[in-house]
């Protein structure tokens, strides 16, 4: 174990961990929302994320930004970011809707056993990922440089914090606060909580169950789409197959915080990002991907309900 590497740049690992964790948290929200309402792991959510990430890159390309172009000027950067986020959110929400309609709704109508949902979800996930893979010829696609990666915004205790990191963390937090308010304050949010508590009773009380479920998928899609755009900005290239691993880690994050619990997704995402980055410093970057699984297995052994407990329905009725 290489403690020197960790402690010589502890601040750097922390801020990188938080940045990665913010993206995990955004994707984890999609898992947690769907799980809270349907008690179902939406395995295809990783492809919802990928769809957003690709859509943002192709959207920028349509605006004339290819992989080598560099955006400049505060106004145009903000515009590109907003447009990218919007396109990504629409694409992801659309993918999520299609998955819900094609893969899940027919099974719900037939009252299929829970494992059937998981199997169709995996099928849908593979089919979508492969479709992107075939379309991109399995090559990485480069994103334009919207925000310069080496642009240092400020320095805390000797650690440089870049613009990209601030952007990712702040926008992820803003999205989550907005979602929390929406679920806890709005009329639709109340419907979501009601369906999460008891589907049948909610339906008897006059809530349109199918519409609420669709809304849940769309919200999860919007979050994943924004996460996809932030991923493009942070990494700079995108391969069709990255969704799988990222989705698995985001799912781990959701379980870590307590699946079905919105604030838990945030805590779990940030924590997993930190743990993963510290571990990659200690054991070497090769082993980084293993950390999430070890965390998941250990967690399921000792505290399967996660740190904050599972509850979307019990959040506050």
């Amino acid at each position: 174990m290489n403690f020197n590497a960790l402690f010589s740049d502890f601040g750097g690992y922390t801020i990188t961990g938080l940045t990665v964790g913010a993206i995990y948290a955004l994707v984890a929200l999609g898992y947690t929302l769907v799980y809270g309402v349907l008690r179902l792991i939406n395995f295809a959510h990783s492809e919802v994320f990928i769809a957003g990430a690709f859509a943002a890159i192709w959207g920028w390309a349509a605006l004339g930004l290819d992989r080598d172009s560099v955006a400049s000027g505060f106004g145009s950067i903000m515009l590109y970011l907003l447009v990218g986020a919007l396109i990504a959110a629409v694409a992801s929400a659309g993918t999520a809707t299609v998955v819900e309609r094609v893969a899940y709704r027919p099974l719900r109508k037939r009252n299929a056993p829970p494992l059937a949902f998981l199997i169709t979800a995996i099928g849908a996930s593979i089919a979508i990922a492969e479709a992107f893979g075939i379309y991109t010829r399995r090559l990485p696609v480069g994103a334009p440089t919207i925000v310069k990666p080496d642009l240092v915004l400020f320095e805390v205790a000797g650690t440089e914090v870049t613009m990209v990191q601030v952007l990712v963390i702040v926008s992820a937090l803003a999205m989550m606060v907005a979602l929390d308010l929406f679920i806890n304050r709005s009329r639709i949010g109340r419907g979501i909580r009601a369906v999460a508590q008891d589907q049948n009773t909610a339906a008897l009380m006059g809530i349109n169950k199918d519409r609420i479920i669709l809304v849940v998928f769309i919200i999860g899609g919007v979050m994943a789409g924004v996460a996809g755009m932030l991923y493009d900005i942070r990494i700079g290239t995108l391969t069709y197959s990255v969704g799988f691993l990222l989705g698995l880690k985001a799912f781990t994050a959701a379980v870590l915080g307590g699946i079905g619990n919105l604030r838990g997704a945030l805590v779990g995402g940030l924590l997993l990002g930190l743990v993963e980055n510290y571990a990659s410093a200690l054991f070497g970057a090769n082993w980084k991907d293993l950390v999430a699984f070890v965390v998941l297995v250990v967690l399921l052994m000792f505290r399967p309900t996660g740190l904050l407990g599972e509850s979307l329905g019990r959040a506050r009725a």
Binding site: I119, T120, I122, G123, A124, A127, I128, E130, A131, I134
Partner: peptide, 15 residues
């Protein structure tokens, strides 16, 4: 297309 095809097979079969 093999993996895409089998992904779709899973969906169609389960439904």
């Amino acid at each position: 297309y093999r993996f895409m095809f089998f992904g779709l097979v899973l969906v169609v079969m389960m439904i």
